[in-house]
Simulated scan of single mutants.
Amino acid sequence: MFTAGIKVIKTEDELIIKWQLSEVKIPLEDIIEVIEDETYGGQSPDSIRIGTPYGTTDRIIIRTKQHNYLLFTTNKFTILKEINS
């Protein structure tokens, strides 16, 4: 799924997030929750940020056992659908 420069692919074992030249692989068993974040920079200052933060972009937090990932996107519904499928 490609949206706002972020490509999200869900396999049987992991969630793969690609943005520009970066690729992040998150084991599905490590994901604790996936939520929307209404704050500009994210609630957790130590989150790994993926995407470009604009005033109108949506924010999705992926909380895992080790890290929090903050995705900046213009199409949160498409990304959430791919993650939750």
Rank of each mutant, 00 (worst) to 15 (best):
1 M>G: 08
1 M>T: 07
1 M>H: 08
3 T>M: 01
4 A>Q: 02
5 G>A: 05
5 G>R: 00
7 K>G: 03
10 K>I: 05
11 T>N: 03
11 T>I: 02
13 D>R: 02
14 E>G: 08
16 I>Y: 06
16 I>R: 05
17 I>L: 04
18 K>T: 00
19 W>R: 03
20 Q>D: 11
20 Q>M: 11
21 L>M: 09
24 V>D: 06
24 V>S: 10
24 V>F: 14
26 I>T: 01
27 P>M: 08
27 P>R: 00
27 P>H: 00
28 L>V: 02
28 L>H: 02
29 E>I: 02
31 I>L: 10
33 E>K: 12
33 E>C: 14
33 E>W: 00
35 I>L: 13
35 I>R: 15
35 I>H: 00
36 E>G: 09
36 E>S: 08
37 D>W: 08
37 D>L: 06
39 T>N: 07
39 T>W: 14
40 Y>N: 05
40 Y>W: 09
42 G>R: 07
42 G>N: 00
42 G>C: 07
43 Q>M: 08
43 Q>K: 01
43 Q>I: 02
44 S>Y: 13
45 P>H: 02
45 P>W: 12
45 P>R: 04
46 D>I: 13
46 D>G: 07
47 S>H: 13
48 I>Y: 05
48 I>V: 15
48 I>P: 07
48 I>L: 14
50 I>M: 09
51 G>F: 00
51 G>E: 09
52 T>Y: 13
53 P>T: 05
53 P>F: 05
54 Y>K: 10
54 Y>P: 01
55 G>V: 08
56 T>R: 11
57 T>Y: 15
57 T>I: 09
57 T>L: 12
58 D>N: 15
59 R>L: 15
59 R>T: 11
60 I>E: 14
60 I>R: 03
60 I>Q: 10
61 I>H: 07
62 I>A: 10
63 R>N: 15
63 R>C: 07
63 R>D: 13
63 R>V: 10
64 T>V: 12
64 T>E: 13
64 T>G: 14
65 K>S: 14
66 Q>L: 14
66 Q>M: 06
66 Q>N: 13
69 Y>R: 02
72 F>W: 04
72 F>Y: 15
75 N>H: 13
76 K>T: 04
76 K>N: 04
77 F>E: 14
78 T>Q: 13
78 T>G: 11
78 T>K: 14
78 T>S: 13
79 I>K: 10
79 I>R: 01
79 I>M: 04
80 L>W: 08
81 K>M: 06
81 K>F: 11
81 K>A: 07
82 E>I: 10
84 N>G: 03
85 S>N: 11
85 S>C: 08
